[in-house]
Design a protein around this nucleic acid. Structure first.
Length: 258
DNA sequence: ATGGCGAACAACGTTCGA
């Protein structure tokens, strides 16, 4: 089973790119972030034509997350975090894999820049709420796959120019510590689990030829709980969609379960 | 230090993202 996570930067603007990706790589489940649409305008039909069922937590213009799946998911939840600003940033669903019930949590963590504004405080609060929720989720079901756009660069090898990001909301020590706190609850950064030193990115800015120069950062992640990490056979950052026409500035990260 | 790009909108300039 392949589970993929992709910040699509508008599901409607990206629909052809997304459909091509689904046809070519056939993920069983795709978690999307920044769908930038209300539920009513979500392209349900495009996905059902490719045999995916859609679960959507939309929002007009900004944010919005969705999970599409070839097989039925259960217990769809939008309320894991009481979002102070009422932004749509988290959706959870349960999947069965080899008789195990796995909770899939799809997140779009706030960016947090600039750091001297309420946006940064909102990010910190959101992360604290997430950590608290994860603690309670683990007690109910230890099998968790947390995927999405974390807007966190884990360490210096995960960004093209670490020095210039020291005081950025994506890389500040204070923020990286929150990721560490999450991992310490009993999770593994799947990319680092399989790649101890490799540098690989999931985001490249549209500006200044960042893609062409490979000026990127690794901010999209899968954290998998200890109880099921042995089920993950591989991880792949799929750069193909980023190089195509009308790309998102992010590219999918995929994990394979067996 | 600014702007560069791309998307959305009771839109055609403004705000947001990372």
């Amino acid at each position: 089973m392949i589970i993929s996570s992709w910040n699509v930067n508008s599901v409607r603007a990206r629909i052809e790119n997304i459909k091509n990706y689904l046809k070519k790589y056939k993920p069983d489940i795709l978690m999307m972030q920044e769908i930038k649409t209300e539920n009513i305008n979500f392209p349900y039909d495009d996905f059902s034509n490719l045999n995916y069922e859609s679960h959507v937590f939309g929002q007009k213009s900004y944010n919005g997350v969705a999970i599409i799946s070839k097989n039925k998911l259960k217990n769809i939840r939008f309320d894991l975090i009481k979002d102070k600003l009422n932004q749509s940033r988290i959706i959870s669903a349960d999947a069965i894999f080899k008789n195990k019930n796995i909770q899939l949590i799809n997140i779009y963590i706030p960016n947090g820049n600039p750091i001297d504004t309420a946006k940064y405080q909102y990010k910190k609060k959101w992360l604290d709420d997430l950590i608290r929720q994860l603690k309670s989720c683990i007690k109910k079901n230890p099998n968790i796959i947390l995927g999405g756009d974390f807007n966190i660069i884990p360490s210096s090898e995960d960004v093209y120019n670490a020095k210039s990001f020291e005081n950025d909301a994506l890389f500040r020590l204070e923020i990286r510590k929150k990721l560490r706190e999450m991992i310490n609850l009993g999770f593994n950064d799947v990319y680092r689990h399989f790649n101890k030193t490799k540098e690989d990115y999931t985001f490249w800015d549209y500006m200044r030829g960042a893609w062409q120069k490979n000026n990127g950062m690794r901010i999209d992640h899968f954290l998998v709980s200890n109880s099921i990490i042995d089920k993950i056979k591989s991880v792949n950052i799929n750069k193909d969609p980023r190089g195509r026409k009308k790309p998102s500035d992010h590219t999918p990260i995929e994990i394979k379960l067996a």
